[in-house]
Amino acid sequence: MSATLALAAGLVWLIAANLIGMLPSRDHHWGNAYRLMAAFVPILIWLAWSNGLLWAAAFVVAAASVLRWPLIYLWRWLRRVRQG
Rank of each mutant, 00 (worst) to 15 (best):
W75K: 10
Y73G: 12
P70V: 05
A58Q: 00
P70E: 05
W46Q: 00
G52T: 01
W75D: 11
A58L: 13
P70C: 13
A48G: 05
A64Q: 08
L54V: 10
P42T: 14
W49P: 01
L74Y: 15
V66S: 03
L74V: 13
W46A: 12
R76S: 13
A62G: 04
A56I: 02
P42F: 06
W69C: 03
L71S: 13
L67D: 03
L74I: 08
I43D: 02
I45P: 05
L54G: 14
G52C: 07
I45V: 15
S65P: 00
F59P: 02
S50V: 03
L44D: 10
F59M: 09
V61I: 14
V61L: 07
L67E: 07
A57G: 08
F59T: 05
I45A: 15
Y73C: 14
R76Q: 15
V61T: 10
P70H: 14
W55Y: 10
A63K: 05
W75C: 09
I45H: 06
L47H: 04
W69H: 08
V60N: 03
W69Q: 14
I43N: 00
W49M: 04
S65A: 12
A57Y: 08
A62M: 08
W49Q: 03
L67R: 09
A58M: 12
V61M: 10
P42V: 11
V66G: 11
I43M: 02
S50L: 00
R68V: 14
V61W: 04
L71D: 04
A64S: 15
L67C: 02
A56S: 13
S65E: 12
S65C: 11
L54N: 02
I72M: 12
L74Q: 14
I72C: 04
W55D: 00
A62P: 05
P42A: 07
F59G: 00
L44K: 11
W75R: 15
A64N: 07
R68E: 03
A56P: 06
A63V: 08
L47P: 00
W46T: 06
A57N: 08
A58W: 00
L74S: 11
L71P: 04
A56W: 03
N51R: 12
I45C: 06
N51K: 04
R68T: 06
A63L: 09
W55K: 09
R76K: 13
V66A: 04
L67G: 02
W55S: 07
R68L: 11
Y73M: 15
L53F: 07
A48H: 03
P42N: 04
W69P: 00
P70G: 06
V66H: 07
V60I: 15
V61P: 04
R68G: 00
I43K: 05
L71M: 15
A48V: 11
Y73R: 15
A64M: 11
W46Y: 10
L53A: 05
A56H: 02
W49I: 06
R68H: 08
A56E: 02
I45K: 06
L67M: 12
A58I: 06
L47E: 09
A57R: 08
A62N: 09
P70M: 09
G52K: 04
P42L: 03
A62K: 05
Y73N: 14
P70R: 11
Y73T: 12
W46D: 06
L53R: 08
V61D: 03
W55R: 03
A56D: 01
W46K: 01
L67H: 02
